[in-house]
């Protein structure tokens, strides 16, 4: 029997949102897999140089970073605008690199020690004098596998 409900208010059925968390979780996992944690907070500004013959650094645990660039705005006053080196979370002098590398290497598993890679993340306008000093320090520390961090160049 057809019942005529004219007086009853028509209500929208509640939208079923039970699958929403699943969708968001999927997004979350996607981002977790494709991105990487920031290693440190930069105290120097680095505009990556560009190159074409790049190789990816596969094993994160083998890689140690040296950051080279001019101090960011907030550190300008204290450290000036000259190119500085950052190791982990602090500014450092060239002379400290050798110790840093040796310490980091001795903290690694013994089987990995010979495979350590040092990635030099330097601003593209850095003068080569600084880079040469770093390279000499790395040679003295026997960290001979290095990688000049760069981004893919698309055109000249």
């Amino acid at each position: 029997m057809a019942k005529i409900r004219r007086n009853e208010k028509r209500e929208m059925p509640a939208l079923n949102t039970s699958s929403l968390p699943d969708i968001i979780f999927m997004l979350l996992f996607f981002f977790m897999t494709v991105t990487s944690m920031k290693e440190v907070s930069y105290k120097v500004t680095i505009h990556n140089p560009q190159a074409t013959e790049l190789t990816k650094l596969e094993q994160k645990s083998l890689v140690r970073y040296i950051y080279v660039g001019t101090p960011t705005e907030e550190f300008r006053k204290q450290y000036g605008a000259e190119t500085r080196i950052q190791l982990d979370d602090a500014f450092a002098e060239v002379g400290e690199i050798e110790n840093y590398i040796v310490n980091e290497r001795s903290a690694m598993a013994e089987s990995d020690q010979g495979r350590m890679i040092v990635s030099i993340k330097a601003d593209k306008d850095t003068r080569m004098g600084v880079i040469s000093d770093i390279k000499q320090a790395l040679r003295r520390a026997y960290a001979l596998r290095i990688s000049y961090s760069a981004t893919q160049r698309t055109s000249y």
């Binding site: 981002f31 977790m32 494709v34 991105t35 990487s36 944690m37 920031k38 190159a51 013959e53 790049l54 190789t55 990816k56 650094l57 994160k60 890689v63 890679i117 990635s119 030099i120 001979l144 596998r145 290095i146 990688s147 000049y148 961090s149 760069a150 981004t151 893919q152």
Partner: peptide
């Protein structure tokens, strides 16, 4: 997290 991939010019 950051999207930047760690790629570079490998040298010895």
């Amino acid at each position: 997290t950051s999207m930047d991939v760690n790629s570079g010019l490998s040298r010895r």
